[in-house]
Write a protein that binds this DNA or RNA. Structure first.
Lengths: 269, 269
DNA sequence: CGGTGAATTGAGGTACGTCAAATTGAGTGG
DNA sequence: CCACTCAATTTGACGTACCTCAATTCACCG
């Protein structure tokens, strides 16, 4: 299974795996890094731990997750080679990071030093800012997914998302580093539903499976339009969509606006 | 309806509404800003427009949203006074911003200048980075919400989230700037379900309504544990949760790890 | 007082979650 | 090499929470 990473337009720095769209981090930042490996199943850190480092995943896979009050795991992000993570607005992490595959390795950037470097080095600051903006974009895109979609759409979009990640998808051949359970926790569905969706996609000829982890996308259009049937209903009721476009709300608007205006004046005085 | 914003620990710069947790932006950045107002229902910008500015909402309310292929609107974020937005990793916006209430006003920061300033001024860079990290935290928190929760939980969490926003909630009294439709599009539910959930919360004594926009939280604990009943089932099956904790996956792991190692060697050579 | 859109309430269908069983497939020991 | 084990995945059956469609009530406004 020889794999070529060079399919993208981005050039890799020697010695660095370089999968993320925005390419390598500045040398000055990399000089801070220490390397570490971790084993499957072990958390790199837990929610509530001190957020004293940033990290970058080098090889393998991990996920950012929370354990909800009902004992379930919600995966908020898969971390793949090249991903920078561990950012935290507060002093303590809000999420845990769990290793998904053996042989996963990280670079660790001491937060204080990295932030000092970001203050001193505009290139570093810019790189980190770009990564953060990217994260925001990805998270927002995922939110759209989680929100308004049925099972088939979610799984289809998930596969397409993975196909965009150089470390998972080479062309239309994917090697998924995560289990069905992890996919389920990522998409907020039951494992069984994930499995059924995959079966359906297979039956539709959109994908083929070499084994449960190796997926080949055979019909991209089918994936992209996975839910054409389920969407048909809404085309019958376009009034619903337009009906949801916000209209002027006079009473509340004015009271809300004046409330804001009041505070504005208050501060100006 | 006099409203005091000064409840937080953050001090406001004269003339600026200052609700966001991280306080005001550096003066040097504010000097770039131009002000603009907009009317309800009009988009500030649309998905696909050139992302040539960052924005900060001053008064009123707006939302970041996408129109999905089936004609629905998915709201990925509510924008309230103090919020900085319009960040974009690419050159074009991926989301539209729609005004929700009349009298909404923005500060606009030309992107090129702001980025140049961020490169030159570490304080600006740090402030923006902090805001971005915060956005990431909020988005991740919302993802947890969108994922694993029933209708009652979603609406309860939404109300608690709004109660955290100084421009919406003063103590436990909320004035929601958005309609039920917008709440529905935010939580990815049907309006009817939102309405029913609110009715249920009212019946449970967790909230009272002065009118449909003015909500008083009368029992925070009830909101925080809104779903105690619906969660009970999972306590009966803790094995499920532990069963989902990832275990070693030897075959795929090794192939995946060696794949990564191969690319690593490749780049090092 | 009628008009209008927002919000609520009601009734019914369905996609997905849950529980349970069958199947696959890799690792292990004889 | 083959039986056995154990976990991952798939398949099946069934109940229910939510979505859809429809009707009603509510709040504001001319």
């Amino acid at each position: 299974m020889a794999v070529s990473i060079s399919k993208g337009t981005h050039r890799a720095a020697a010695g660095w795996i370089d999968c993320a769209p925005l390419g390598r981090l500045p040398e000055t930042l990399e000089l801070l890094a220490t390397r570490a490996g971790a084993e499957t199943g072990k958390p790199l850190y837990n929610a509530g731990d001190a957020a004293d480092s940033w990290y970058r995943l080098l090889t393998g896979a991990a996920c950012e997750c929370v354990l909800t009050a009902d004992g379930r795991r919600q995966i908020v992000n898969f971390l793949l080679p090249g991903d920078l993570f561990g950012f935290c607005a507060r002093s303590r992490h809000e999420f845990s990071v769990e290793i998904i595959v053996d042989g996963t390795a990280f670079a660790r950037y001491p937060r204080r030093q990295a932030e000092e470097l970001a203050s001193a080095d505009a290139e570093v600051a810019s790189a980190i800012r770009q990564r953060a903006f990217e994260s925001i974009s990805r998270l927002q895109a995922r939110m759209v997914l989680l929100g308004r979609t049925n099972a088939l759409e979610k799984v289809s979009a998930f596969l397409l998302e993975m196909a965009e990640r150089p470390s998972v998808g080479i062309g239309d051949d994917l090697v998924l580093p995560m289990s069905r359970y992890e996919i389920a926790d990522y998409l907020a569905m039951a494992v069984e539903t994930v499995s059924r969706a995959i079966t359906t996609l297979k039956a539709q000829g959109a994908i083929t499976l070499a084994n449960s982890r190796q997926v080949r996308i055979t019909d991209r259009l089918a994936l992209e339009h996975a839910s054409a049937e389920s969407r048909r209903r809404s085309s019958l009721a376009p009034t619903d969509a337009s009906g949801r476009v916000s209209r002027t709300v006079k009473l509340y608007t004015s009271s809300f606006a004046s409330q804001e205006r009041a505070t504005s004046v208050r501060h100006a005085g």
